[in-house]
């Protein structure tokens, strides 16, 4: 069979920007009573097939924990991608995205694929964050910018599909780099998982012990 990838994507942003609704929309088929009762609700997964490559996507919603700084490192470690969500009607939520970008770059350097997402485009009339400003900012930090509406289910499929493609690309570049013997780079410790089966427990031990 084809190649298989496992990626972890972390969802960040202020409370009330619609992180949870966004991911629930995307994984709708995954969200049922069983998930709720076992409280696996916030650990959402999706399987995709992109050009013959199988992708297992684990999406980590951080809702409710926005203010717990201590939890941050526990979340980002080993993430392959981050989706930074703001509410287009809330300027402050966009400023918070900038903080997240800073933090993630500090922690993970350029090894993480960043998406900046303006949610709630159904409220276009109340927009407080200019499209141009957001797109320029995204470009300046090496992120891609998207617009979504969780309410109207707009832009969400495209966002995740695009992110997956970028993560596959990054993983393949990493793999090639490692194959060339230049594995001294900090890439290996993040543990891009390229596997043919279900993900195993990752014991990278990485960012904490080795510094």
């Amino acid at each position: 069979g084809g190649r298989s990838f496992s990626f972890k994507v972390v969802l960040l942003g202020e409370g009330c920007v619609g992180k949870t609704s966004l991911v629930l929309r995307y994984c709708e088929n995954k969200f049922n009573d069983k998930h709720i009762t076992t409280l696996q609700a916030s650990f959402l997964t999706k399987k995709l097939n992109i050009g013959g490559k199988r992708v297992n996507l684990a999406i980590w919603d951080t809702a409710g924990q926005e203010r717990f700084h201590a939890l941050g490192p526990i979340y980002y470690r080993d993430s392959n991608g981050a989706i930074l969500v703001y509410d287009i009607t809330d300027e402050d939520s966009f400023q918070k995205v900038k903080n997240w970008v800073k933090e993630l770059r500090k922690m993970l350097g350029n090894e993480i694929c960043l998406c900046i997402v303006g949610n709630k485009i159904d409220l276009e009339k109340e927009r407080h964050v200019s499209v141009q400003e957001a797109e320029m900012y995204a470009e300046s930090v090496g992120a891609k910018h998207y617009h979504t509406s969780a309410k109207q289910n707009k832009g969400i499929e495209e966002l995740f599909l695009d992110l997956c493609k970028r993560m596959i690309e990054t993983a393949q570049v990493d793999e090639r780099a490692r194959g060339n013997g230049s594995s001294q780079s900090g890439i290996a410790r993040r543990g891009v998982q390229i596997i043919d089966d279900e993900p195993q427990v990752q014991s990278s031990g990485g960012c904490c012990s080795s510094g």
Binding site: I36, L39, S42, G64
Partner: peptide, 12 residues
């Protein structure tokens, strides 16, 4: 963690 669970239940 528990706040997250509560929000998941509430939104889900």
């Amino acid at each position: 963690v528990h706040l997250k669970d509560l929000i998941s239940l509430y939104e889900g």
